[in-house]
């Protein structure tokens, strides 16, 4: 083989399943790979792992915001179903409890949006010639879109029925 030549290799090799303890996942061991020590102690992850570090806790909070958003969507669907009775028979939800639930769900939705949009610059890699679009620009466009869509919806709610 000449200098710089690279052998033709493919990625279609199957990877065997993990062992019982999950530590032996991977391709068949190379002959030079030393055997797995028989007495290795398998340390388990405690149920409270997410309390151990701030990053884990913030992750769990981020994920749980989806529960509040889902709850609000279910409430919204129920309201649509109730509205089918017609304007005369429809009594919109109200009262302090409904307002409190709405405020909590709004806070969860805003936090979810903030975490999602802030990470957009990391997630999205948009090629532009031989470079990529700046993550800061991507995040800016995302937030701009959020403000624009919110303004349109607010406008429809405030003036759409007039």
């Amino acid at each position: 083989m000449r200098s710089g030549d690279v052998a033709k290799v493919r990625l279609d090799e199957a990877r065997p399943a993990a062992g019982v303890d999950g530590v032996t996942a991977g391709t068949a061991a190379h002959p030079s790979t030393p055997a797995k020590p028989a007495a290795a102690y398998p340390v388990k992850q405690p149920f409270t792992w997410w309390t151990r570090r701030r990053g884990y806790l913030l992750y769990m909070l981020r994920e749980f915001t989806a529960v509040g958003i889902a709850a609000w969507m279910i409430l919204f669907l129920v309201e649509i179903a109730r509205a089918r009775q017609g304007a005369s028979g429809y009594q919109p939800l109200g009262g302090p409890l409904f307002i409190a639930v709405g405020v909590v769900c709004l806070a969860l939705a805003l936090w979810h949006s903030y975490t999602f949009l802030s990470l957009a610059g990391v997630i999205m890699r948009i090629p532009l010639g031989d470079r990529t679009v700046s993550p800061r620009l991507i995040v800016g466009v995302m937030y701009g879109g959020l403000v624009a869509v919110t303004a349109v919806i607010a406008g429809l709610l405030i003036w759409g029925g007039a």
Partner: peptide, 9 residues
């Protein structure tokens, strides 16, 4: 060893 296998994969 699990990491080494994953790396090769």
């Amino acid at each position: 060893s699990s990491f080494m296998d994953k790396l090769k994969w």
